[in-house]
Amino acid sequence: MRKTVVAFNRVPVDLLEPYAQELEIIRLEGAGEDLNSQLDRVLPVAHGLIGGNRKFSRSQIESAKNLQIISSISVGYDNYDVNALTEQGVLLTNTPDVLTETTADLAFALILSTARRVPELDHWTKTGNWLQATGEAQFGTDVHGKTLGILGMGQIGSAIARRGHFGFGMQILYSGRSRKLDIERELSARYLSKEELLGSSDFVCPMTPLTEKTKNFIGAKEFQLMKRSAILVNVSRGPVVDEAALVQALAAGEIRAAGLDVFVKEPMATSPLFSLSNVVTVPHIGSATHETRRAMAVRAIENLLCGLAGNRPRDLVNSEAWDRRIA
């Protein structure tokens, strides 16, 4: 009997075509409530799900009686109820490593565009304000030679730090649960407490995963510790930063600027952040290049096929579900 796979988004058609003979592939189209209703109809017959940026409720998971694996085309998996999946014996996989360099590129794009006020001055120029030589009102701040603080020196954090150290001669500070001696040797990085890092950094990049402990990891207290000239860049998860406190800090001049790829609510059409000239915002595009999204899809398909074949996938998130299966 052929197993049924439901592809809900981010899966290029041509990548699944070679498996159409061995799998029953159902592709879902649409968004919002329409996609939810489609999912509700097909979940009871699905053996595998593949896609990204989709939340599944506990009731949906419990209705998927045949489900063996969800292969997520993402690194973060906070959209998924991992406990519910584990209880049901459903494997969850993600696509780490593939988007590391691409996301680090975007983080540095936000560092540069906030420091040099690129989007703001692009708009200023195009709306007819460049009538004489620029002056202090258009000045930004240097990036080269400054201090870059990474809160969570994982793979993406390390990639951002390398760009800063080797490309811009920046001093690297970092904090986290443990020291990374190899990073210290490679980048002459210094390990500090969170509080010391916030007070010493010109650019602050929180790179922690989203957990109950890291919600509002950067809030009013942290903004007060930062330099008034500091810039916050967030390409990790939106809820890591207290957005209300960030708006207040930016409006009051407690910090210089912010560059944001992620938000508490996604997507959204309006936000107090959008009205602030010292904020650069992009719509969660950390991995959004043709090359990287395709590579993520390839990795996700590999995980999916491995799980459906009864083997342990390379990028298994909930190892307890696998342990239960083989017990």
Rank of each mutant, 00 (worst) to 15 (best):
Y77C: 08
Y77L: 05
Y77S: 03
D78Y: 04
D78L: 04
D78N: 12
D78I: 05
D78F: 02
N79R: 15
Y80F: 15
D81P: 08
D81F: 09
V82P: 03
A84I: 03
A84K: 06
T86D: 11
T86H: 09
T86G: 12
T86Q: 14
E87M: 09
Q88H: 06
Q88Y: 02
Q88F: 01
G89Q: 11
G89L: 13
V90M: 03
V90E: 00
L91I: 04
L92I: 07
L92Y: 03
T93V: 10
N94P: 14
N94K: 10
N94C: 14
P96T: 10
D97N: 13
V98A: 14
V98E: 15
L99I: 10
T100I: 07
E101G: 05
E101C: 03
E101A: 11
T102Y: 11
T102P: 13
T103P: 03
T103F: 10
A104L: 11
A104W: 13
D105A: 05
D105H: 06
L106G: 07
A107N: 08
A109H: 12
L110H: 09
L110S: 12
L110A: 09
L112I: 15
S113M: 15
S113V: 14
T114E: 12
T114C: 13
T114K: 12
A115P: 11
R116L: 12
R116E: 11
R117W: 04
V118D: 01
V118M: 02
P119L: 02
P119Y: 04
E120T: 00
W124M: 01
K126P: 00
K126C: 00
T127H: 02
G128S: 02
G128L: 01
W130I: 05
W130N: 09
W130K: 08
Q132H: 09
G135Q: 11
E136R: 04
A137Q: 06
Q138Y: 00
Q138T: 01
F139V: 00
G140P: 02
G140E: 04
T141E: 11
T141I: 09
D142G: 07
V143C: 04
V143L: 05
H144G: 06
H144M: 05
